[in-house]
Every structure is written in structure tokens, then in C-alpha cells.
Amino acid sequence: MPADFPPAPDTLVRDRAEADTSPLPSRGAPVFAALDLGTNNCRLLVARPARRERGCEGFKVIDAFSRVVRLGEGVCSSGLLSPAAMDRTVEALRICAQKMERRQVTSFRAVATEACRRAANCTDFMARVKDETGLDIEIIDTEEEAALAVAGCVPLLDRDTPYGLVFDIGGGSTEVSFFRLEEGGGHELRKIISIPLGVVSLAERFGCQDIGRTVYEAMIAEVAPHLEKFEAICSIGQRIKAGEVQMLGTSGTVTTLAGMSMGLARYDRSKVDGTFLGFDQVEEMTTRLVSLDYAGRAAQPCIGHDRADLVLAGCAILDAICRRWPVGRLRVGDRGVREGILFGLLQKHETGRVRHATGPHYRRLTL
């Protein structure tokens, strides 16, 4: 790990706007919870069935939690979860378990992603989590992670544009999905790629404080070959030229840039989720961020010290995606895996049949 990589930041809760003070549910009423333990963040949503709420058909969020835990800090170099990272994460998971107990959750699913997929000591860590919090966390593969993110974001997409390109820039990996939208709200997943580069892993490789244009372009060049392989398989560029592709990004990178573009003094999910970012706006903001040092980035609203060390790595991944597939604008989703899990839990509840939580009307097409 480079010497300039700072320790994990203090607690950050970005979902405070989602949580409400709704009364506890009546006895027998279903309450669902979805927990996403990523390389950088631990996120929880608690919801109950509803017809439509804030663009998400099927459920109403009644509680939420998000904390930067940096679980994957140093995993790329050591292959292990560090004691400090595990301690931070267990503390956050205790809070999640307490919230679920208070909200009388009747059905939940907890998943872990890239850091836990990579770490050799993850089995021991999962045993500790179960012992200290009571939570059973499932380590999912990259394809299911991407499928859940797509399922969570589909309600934001325009049904008049036949193809969707959704990307999720995570801490340890980046998932890109290409699919066709179907009548009735479903989608036919054509192909998924998981790139073993995320904001934490890329920042650890290239440094994360004083990054000039040369280093920034080197980060983009690290990502580009992975995208070229995906393009060779899917021929997305041809669909873009025909005006048949829409793009959506779900990650801290795109939501942060969206908040900056709106001039928010403080991040507000209700204003960011569902907004659009033009590629010209992305270029303008990334150019400005590259020109700033660590302190300058930390001083920016919607970034702060918790994201100042990682934001440029995320911007480099986003830049590579925008250059490879020049759609012209992208929709911003402050949603993803958790919402995909909730759709699956809701579907299971409504049908009474056990199935994987991969979203409504989902079917996989293998190329």
C-alpha cells in the first residue's frame, strides 16, 4: 500500500435522508431488509411493501444505514482482511442487526462482495460476524452482484430506449452490464463483466493524494483494456450510433459528482437519485478535481475527507467508461444491490416461492 494512503475515515452515514420516523409495523406485517457489505461501505435498507415510493415500485424504505468501513483496505497487497478493518465492519454490522431487530424484520438477505471474495481469511471473519452480530452473510459472485444492481436500477430507465448499459463502480471491482428492456418491466441480460478494479484497489495501486494528469491518465489506461474486451463481445458501440442505448451509473463516484454538479452544500439522496449527468459535466468536474490536491478535494462539498482519497480513482474508471461508450449522458442511481435484493424478497413474498433475489421478470441470456 502506498505510504500516502490514509487510514479509514470517521463514520459516514449518507442515507440519513432515507430513514424516517414511521411507527413500527403492526404484528404480522412483512418487513424486509437488504444488507450489502462491500469493499468500502456497509449499507442497509429496511422496507415494507407499498405500491410505489420514490420511483421504486413495490416497497417503501422505512430505515437506512450506510457507513464507510474500508473492509478491503490492503487486501490487494496482503490477500487478507486486516484486524482494524474487521473491527470497523463488525461495529457497523452490529448497528445493522440492531436496526433490523427494532424494525421487526421478517425477511432479510445480507450479501458480501469483492473484499470477501478475495480475502483468504474471510471464512473466519464470517464466523466472527455470525458469533458477534447474529447475521448470516452470503458471499455472492460477480455475476449475481451485477444482476442485483441492474434489478435495483431498472425502474429509473426509459422504456422507449431498448438497451441499457449499467455500471457499478465499487471499492474492489467494477461491474458493467448490458441488457435489453422488455415489455412488462422486465429485462433480458445479455452480458456482464466484472473488472477487478475499484476505487480502493485502484487508489492503492496508483496513490491517492497528490495525483496529477499523468497519473490520472495512467489509471484510465489501466481500466480501458477491460472495457475493450466487453465491447468486442457485445458491440455496444453500434447500438449507441443507432441511438438505442441509455447509460446509468450507480456508485459513490457518480452520486458524488452529481451532488457537486448541483452545487449541493450537503449530499441529499432525494435530489441526486434519478438525475442526469452530461459527459461534458463529467469532464469538467474531473478536470477540476485532478487540478486539486488532497486538501482541496476534501474541502469540496459532497466529498469531504471520507472520499477525498478515493474520488479520483472512481473518476478515472468513470472516464474510461464514458470514453469507450460515448452515449453523451448518464442517469445517476443512488440505488443498486440493496434495492435488487428488496425486489427479490418482495417477489418471494408475493409468489410464495423460493428464488434468488435477482429482481422482477429477470432472465439471463448467454451469448
Rank of each mutant, 00 (worst) to 15 (best):
133 T>Q: 07
207 G>L: 08
209 Q>V: 13
169 I>R: 01
143 E>G: 08
172 G>K: 01
126 M>L: 15
102 R>C: 03
208 C>S: 13
196 P>L: 04
122 C>V: 15
201 S>P: 07
225 P>S: 04
158 D>L: 07
105 V>L: 14
217 E>R: 13
136 D>R: 04
109 R>P: 07
192 I>N: 05
123 T>R: 13
108 F>C: 07
200 V>W: 01
156 L>I: 02
118 R>K: 12
189 L>I: 12
174 T>E: 13
106 T>F: 04
138 E>D: 15
152 G>Y: 10
137 I>A: 00
138 E>R: 13
101 E>V: 06
174 T>A: 13
176 V>D: 03
181 L>S: 14
185 G>C: 14
165 L>V: 04
112 A>W: 01
199 V>W: 03
168 D>M: 01
222 E>A: 15
136 D>V: 12
149 A>E: 05
172 G>Y: 00
201 S>M: 09
214 T>H: 13
121 N>R: 05
132 E>R: 12
164 G>L: 09
189 L>G: 05
181 L>T: 11
211 I>D: 09
226 H>Q: 03
121 N>G: 11
143 E>D: 15
115 A>L: 04
225 P>N: 06
187 H>T: 02
104 Q>V: 01
209 Q>P: 02
175 E>K: 05
152 G>N: 06
170 G>E: 04
145 E>F: 06
159 R>V: 11
126 M>I: 08
228 E>M: 00
228 E>A: 03
134 G>W: 15
135 L>D: 02
198 G>A: 08
122 C>Y: 02
204 E>R: 02
136 D>K: 08
114 E>Q: 07
150 V>Q: 00
210 D>G: 09
180 R>L: 06
101 E>I: 02
119 A>R: 05
125 F>Y: 14
206 F>E: 04
126 M>F: 13
127 A>F: 09
143 E>Q: 14
156 L>A: 07
107 S>R: 06
198 G>R: 08
101 E>M: 06
213 R>Y: 14
134 G>N: 09
196 P>E: 10
123 T>K: 10
111 V>W: 01
161 T>F: 08
197 L>G: 05
228 E>W: 00
185 G>V: 13
147 A>I: 07
165 L>G: 02
103 R>C: 13
193 I>R: 00
111 V>A: 08
218 A>N: 09
197 L>E: 04
178 F>M: 15
202 L>S: 08
155 P>S: 11
177 S>A: 15
107 S>H: 09
113 T>M: 04
139 I>G: 12
200 V>D: 00
164 G>A: 10
189 L>M: 11
